[in-house]
C-alpha cells in the first residue's frame, strides 16, 4: 500500500468513527515510514475536516463527531510522543480556547478546540468557567505569538461576560496582541460587533474557517 493509500485509510477510519481501526492504521503509517506530522496533517486532520463538513451539511451529528474525536485521541496518544521529538513544523498561531465564567457547557467548546487544532493552531484549552484573570494571564504568557482567543457561552447570562472580557483585555493594553472570536447559541454577529470582538461563527467547522481567515 502506498503512503497516500495509508493516509487515506487513516482519514477514512476517523470519518467512520473507528477507534480501534484508527489506532492500528496509525501504527501501520509509522511502520511504513510516514512521519507523525504527516500522519496528523494529511491523514487525521483531513478526516476531521471531512467530519466537520458532513456535520455542517447535516449528514453527521454530535455523537458521530464525538466518536471521531475519540478515534483522533486514540491516534494522538501514539503520535504525540513521536511528534515531540520530530517537532511540529509551523503553525498558524496559538488559540486560547475557553468557556466563559459561570458556564460549564463544554461540548461546543471541545469541538471548536478540535477543529482549530486540526486546522493548524497550537491549542491552549483553559476549559470551562474561566475567569478574565486567567484569560489575561494566559495571553501574557503567549505575548509575542500570534494569538487567537476563542471563547464560548451557551447562556445569555454568560454571554454578557464576553463584554467584560474584551474590556479587561483592552484595559491591560493587550487588545492589539490578540484576535477575539466568540461563539455559542445566543451569540450573534451584532453582539460581537457591539462588544468590539473580531468575529463569530455558526458552528465548530465554521469557527475553524473564520479563525484561519482572521489570522491572515
Amino acid at each position: 500500500m502506498s503512503d497516500r493509500e495509508i493516509l487515506n485509510k487513516l482519514s477514512d477510519r476517523l470519518v467512520n468513527q473507528d477507534i480501534e481501526g484508527c489506532k492500528t492504521t496509525t501504527l501501520e503509517a509509522l511502520d511504513a515510514g510516514i512521519s507523525a506530522f504527516d500522519a496528523i496533517n494529511e491523514g487525521l486532520s483531513v478526516g476531521m475536516k471531512i467530519v466537520g463538513d458532513k456535520y455542517e451539511l447535516g449528514e453527521l451529528y454530535l455523537p458521530h463527531i464525538m466518536m471521531s474525536a475519540k478515534a483522533m485521541d486514540a491516534a494522538m496518544e501514539i503520535l504525540t510522543p513521536i511528534l515531540e521529538k520530530e517537532g511540529t513544523g509551523e503553525n498558524i498561531g496559538t488559540a486560547i480556547t475557553f468557556v466563559q465564567e459561570g458556564d460549564i457547557h463544554e461540548i461546543g467548546h471541545r469541538l471548536v478546540s478540535i477543529m482549530l487544532g486540526v486546522n493548524g493552531f497550537n491549542i491552549v484549552d483553559l476549559g470551562v468557567d474561566v475567569s478574565n484573570k486567567t484569560i489575561i494571564e494566559e495571553i501574557n504568557k503567549h505575548n509575542g505569538d500570534k494569538i487567537l482567543l476563542a471563547g464560548s457561552a451557551l447562556m445569555t447570562t454568560s454571554m454578557q461576560g464576553q463584554k467584560d472580557t474584551v474590556t479587561a483585555i483592552e484595559e491591560q493594553g493587550l487588545r492589539d496582541s490578540v484576535k477575539i472570536m466568540f461563539g455559542g447559541a445566543p451569540v450573534s454577529e451584532k453582539w460581537v460587533k457591539d462588544i468590539r470582538a473580531d468575529a463569530t461563527a455558526k458552528n465548530a467547522a465554521d469557527a475553524a474557517r473564520v479563525a484561519v481567515e482572521l489570522m491572515k
Binding site: E101, D103, I104, M155, T157
Partner: peptide
C-alpha cells in the same frame, strides 16, 4: 445554584 457571575440556572 446560580449564585456566581455568569451563571443563569442550576448546573450539575
Amino acid at each position: 445554584y446560580p449564585y456566581g457571575k455568569g451563571q443563569g440556572a442550576p448546573f450539575v
